[in-house]
Amino acid sequence: MNALSIGVAAALLVVILAAPKFGLLARWKRHRAYRAKSRSEDALKHILAWQHRSKLASLESLAGTMGLRPAAVLRVVAGLQTAGWVESGAGGIALTASGERRALEVVRAHRLWERHLSDDANMPMGKLHPAAERAEHSLSRQQVAELDAHLGHPQHDPHGDPIPRPDGTISALNAVSLNEWPAGRPALIAHLEDEPQAVFRQILLANLRPMQVVRVAESGPNHLAVEIDGRQHRIERSTAANIHVREIRPQDALPTERTRLSDLVQGACGEVAGLSPDCQGLSRRRLLDLGLTPGTRVEVALDNTFGDPRAFRVRGTTVALRRQQAEQVLIRPFPSSDGAETAP
């Protein structure tokens, strides 16, 4: 009896340990493989980032960024060397041509995934980076290609960073930090740096988003007063260093109106001027499919107890939208609700 139960327990233990897919051993092996892959890819990214700043990475810089002990870093770099992806010289560690290609692939997966999370899953800006840090190591080339096509081959990630192309090229950012931009001249936000997280949160709190027009109203020694959407915000210079801006070009096709559908009061009418540039992917398609294309007449039809959502009259139908979506529809308001008809 006793022997039997010991036998059964032993068999169970063996199964739990060694089952081909779900066994602890197999899980542990998978985990090890994933960890090795993610470490070497993170190292490649770090070396690439330093090269973009015209610096060479070192064992110390790697250990610092990745939070690893020197021995572990040494193992990672040795692995990269065997794969022919890096060369270490006197000044530090440099990427080989194939190593740079590989690093850009990882960056590409990361930024496309951020785009996907933002466009399709509506994830807020602050949560994109950590999620993409995990996903970038497990996406296959095939998956990345499909994602790219599905998203319509986007050129920038939600922060404004350029996405590397499949052939391994990447366009330059061509933007300067907000600190260097002359006061008074309007600029377009090209990029928001998402690391360190604490600074990024400050930027998000000030409601800054890529593709917004910003104007430095006042330039102090430690802070800037910037104007966005007619509202002024005070930003520390250290924060402004993480905001990159560029000249507004005619092909940006920016809507000049500042009124949004969410600003209209009940009974008011307007004409759709366009959709906000930061509304992308599925949510953009939804709004377009509702018929909210430029030139369409919209009327605020219904409020409810909580003031959100509200219903709008569009092309002969009544459609309810949450505030978050109504904010993304830019509007040219009609002077008064009666008598003003849209020109065809």
């Binding site: 509702l290 459609v319 309810a320």
Partner: peptide
């Protein structure tokens, strides 16, 4: 865990 997604709802006559 996640955020509320977009919401569009037709109010039929």
């Amino acid at each position: 865990s996640g955020e509320a997604s977009a919401f569009t709802l037709e109010m039929p006559p």
